[in-house]
Amino acid sequence: MNKFTRLISKAVPLEIENIDTDQIIPARFLKTTTREHFGENLFRDWRLTSNGIPIKNFILNNSSYSGEILLTGKNFGCGSSREHAAWALLDYGFRVVISSSFADIFKENTLNNGLLPIEVSDKFLKDLFQAVQINKNTLLCVDLEKQILKIGTTNKDESFDIDSYKKMCFLNGSDDIDFLISLKDKIKAFEKKHSEFLS
């Protein structure tokens, strides 16, 4: 996992609620056995027609919006557990996703891949959309250490929550697997006293 401390970037406003992972990356693109190249098919059916022609009014096709931050409506990432959705967003170039709520599995997937999910209040989400829509060059400033998200043009800010262990993972670029492996002796001891009806 890559380290993450601060990011100052423009944002792409995708103002739709309940976006499911089937939209983020449709199932027919999940046939590979590696983690690479999913960005090509990010939001595939919203981005391109079946003949591969870009759909004009889809925000990712609007070149005046860019940046490493995706701003999106509530309940983002619901549906299928496919981690490919997080891989596709990262591969496309996003490092932060902002919403007022994320689906549980999607959120864990982003946290395990170094894509920072920031949950803001409904009110602040509105402010964010407004700021970016009024001025496409609005910079958002993410400070993970202080857990603060700030809108450059208006100076409004809001603090956000993150699990302290996960925060440390982002700051150090470390992940769960190494930590879990370091606990093997404890896990083995646990197994000895675990009920036989669960074995």
């Binding site: 997937n109 992940d175 697997i177």
Partner: peptide, 23 residues
């Protein structure tokens, strides 16, 4: 019983455990 992502599949394969916050 709950669904997990591929990174977590690897974690369970490697340690039979997951780091979880109680829902």
């Amino acid at each position: 019983a709950f669904g997990i992502g591929t990174s977590q599949v690897a974690m369970v394969m490697a340690s039979q455990c997951l780091l979880q916050r109680k829902p």
